[in-house]
């Protein structure tokens, strides 16, 4: 019995492919979990999703031209950011609608390119990720992302708190909200660029939003919330890989599913704790 459990637990990691996936998922979980908490409180969840989708034509374009995906993704992000900024100024239709139109257009363009006969096979990994196919370079990038995010969020922690708490009086506390917003968006862009290669265009948002939403239900201060969110992201990521191995489901989708499940569990636990506290 114990023998079977041990085998169930250790078998997946016998393959180097899966060990690399484990490392990638853990690194992206740490990054996405910690950054996601700030995205929630700066109401950037929709922006994160929009940018992730809108950078698709950049990724596909790079794949078609044989350029590094990172380069294509960066170009795609830049185009998306400029298009969103310009569309926001369009009269009559309103900012929300304008952003939706830009994102849908860019995503559609990306899909159109991806389905063209000239496109090399395997482009579905851009949409759904290829966590089992990560290269050493991908792992190094994910590790670099953890270091950069940890450093930036550590240094900016109190300024982010000031702006998130009350944007209107931030200037009086010596903090420029615009500068903090830009810093956070740059970190978001970096996280998207790195994570999109492992988790794919459609699933990357899960690691940014779901663990943070779950942690928000159980933590009362920002730092514990970030740590809880990172832990939830890593654990859910590992659970997703187990699911993928044993149930032979798609790895990226399994990880995303486990992340969302973690949110639901936290929600139920939080709700039950609340009812107990009131009883």
């Amino acid at each position: 019995m114990t023998h079977a459990v041990v085998h169930w637990l250790t078998d997946p990691w016998a393959e180097p492919l899966n060990r690399r996936a484990l490392l990638e998922v853990a690194l992206l979980g740490l990054s996405g979990g910690a950054l996601g908490c700030w995205l929630l409180f700066f109401e950037l969840a929709y922006s994160a999703e929009s940018l992730a989708h809108a950078l698709l034509p950049g990724l596909v374009g790079a794949a078609l031209l044989g350029l590094p995906l990172l380069l294509g993704g960066a170009a795609g992000l830049l185009v998306a950011a400029i298009a969103v900024a310009l569309a926001g100024r369009a009269p009559v239709i309103g900012r929300d609608t304008a952003v939706a139109i830009v994102v849908t257009t860019l995503f559609g363009l990306g899909v159109l390119l991806a389905l063209s006969p000239a496109t090399p096979p395997g482009l579905q990994s851009l949409l759904f990720g290829d966590v089992l196919g990560v290269s050493n370079g991908d792992l190094a990038l994910a590790g670099g992302l953890v270091v950069v995010l940890a450093g930036a969020l550590w240094v900016l922690h109190h300024r982010l708190l000031v702006v998130g708490f009350d944007r209107t009086s931030a200037a009086q506390l010596g903090v420029r909200p615009l500068a903090v917003d830009v810093a956070l968006l740059v970190l978001l862009a970096a996280a998207l660029l790195v994570a999109v290669q492992g988790l794919g265009n459609l699933l990357v948002v899960a690691v940014l939003i779901a663990p943070a939403s779950a942690a928000r239900l159980v933590a009362r201060r920002m730092l514990p919330m970030m740590l809880a969110s990172a832990a939830i992201a890593v654990l859910a990521g590992i659970a997703g890989l187990y699911l993928s191995y044993h149930a032979r489901t798609a790895a990226g989708a399994s990880v995303a599913g486990a992340l969302v499940l973690a949110y639901l569990v936290a929600g139920l636990a939080g709700g039950a704790a609340g009812r107990l506290a009131r009883a």
């Binding site: 409180f41 300024r159 009350d166 506390l173 009362r220």
Partner: peptide, 24 residues
């Protein structure tokens, strides 16, 4: 004007006053 669902303690908020005297 301040968010009541924001994850800060009273001490965190008081400490925000120190930020104005520090470089970024």
């Amino acid at each position: 004007r301040s968010r009541l669902d924001f994850p800060v303690s009273a001490l965190d908020v008081a400490l925000m006053g120190a930020v104005s005297r520090l470089p970024w």
